[in-house]
């Protein structure tokens, strides 16, 4: 990593831009959610961003409640929410529901998906599910130190192009890549980087047709809903909490952002 010396001159590395706010989070400009599989270092990333010391440990399922903290970067204030680690968003366990509901109803400005670079395929399953719900996300390709140790290389450009979101290689335990991560968060939050999130289309024609029929109906009733196809699919699968959200009209509030925390 000889090139890293040259990076010091890049604006990204102006550390004075970053002010860790701990738990002081009044007047928040942007909300950032941290999502990812268990044991990928979400809490470590969280601690690096906020300066808090949320307990970290090398075992899955350590974070059971969401933790919140804040930081300020280039005069904007960010609230960071550390979501429980989950393998998917499709089942009904409590932690998965907490994570999914926050991404769906909490409408974070940016969702940072922390993935384990050494177990990319498994981690991408969750990543793709998150990208179905939100269109503003950053992939934090964490544990790059371990990937290097295992002599693995990850082509971040290909990955970024495929997923349609910024991909930042990082080693949170060594505080590597955190400045770039913050810069990417800012770019997505401010709209400088426009995400074109990957949406799964390789489903059977029959399913795709059903999704299309239903999302057209959804679009009529909830104009402006950002993730029509996903909501349609959840309804087709009989997801009770989404059915409830339709019945109570809660879903309709998503377009106007009333539920913004």
């Amino acid at each position: 990593m000889n090139a890293s010396h040259n990076c010091e001159n890049c604006p990204v590395h102006h550390r004075e831009n970053l002010i860790r706010l701990g738990i002081a989070m009044d007047r928040v400009d942007y909300v950032v959610a941290l999502a990812g599989n268990p044991n990928t270092g979400k809490s470590t990333v969280f601690n690096n961003l906020t300066g808090l010391r949320q307990h970290t440990g090398n075992w899955p399922g350590k974070t059971v409640v969401r933790a919140e903290g804040g930081f300020s970067y280039r005069e904007k204030r960010y609230k960071v929410v550390d979501l429980p680690g989950t393998y998917s968003l499709l089942s009904t366990s409590t932690d998965e529901e907490v994570a999914r509901d926050f991404i769906l109803f909490g409408r974070p400005d940016v969702t940072v998906i922390v993935v384990d670079a050494t177990r990319l395929e498994r981690n991408l399953n969750l990543t793709l599910q998150i990208l179905e719900i939100t269109d503003r996300a950053v992939l934090c390709l964490n544990l790059m130190d371990e990937a290097r140790r295992h002599r693995m290389e990850v082509d971040t450009r290909t990955l970024s192009r495929e997923l349609g979101i910024p991909v930042i290689p990082a080693a949170a335990r060594q505080k590597e890549g955190m400045d770039e991560l913050i810069a990417a968060i800012e770019e997505v939050a401010s709209g400088t980087f426009v995400c074109k999130p990957h949406r799964t289309t390789n489903r059977s024609a029959k399913i795709n047709h059903a999704i299309q029929v239903l999302s057209e109906k959804l679009a009529q009733q909830f104009p402006g809903l950002p993730n029509l196809n996903w909501v349609a699919l959840r309804l087709l699968e009989g997801d009770q909490s989404i059915i409830n959200a339709v019945q109570s009209g809660e879903l309709g509030q998503l377009e106007t952002g009333i539920l913004q925390p």
Binding site: E121, L124, E153, V154, D155, T156, L159, N202
Partner: peptide, 11 residues
């Protein structure tokens, strides 16, 4: 999809 993307990106 995940498997395809991972295959393309990881060496």
């Amino acid at each position: 999809d995940a498997s395809r993307i991972a295959r393309n990106a990881v060496h």
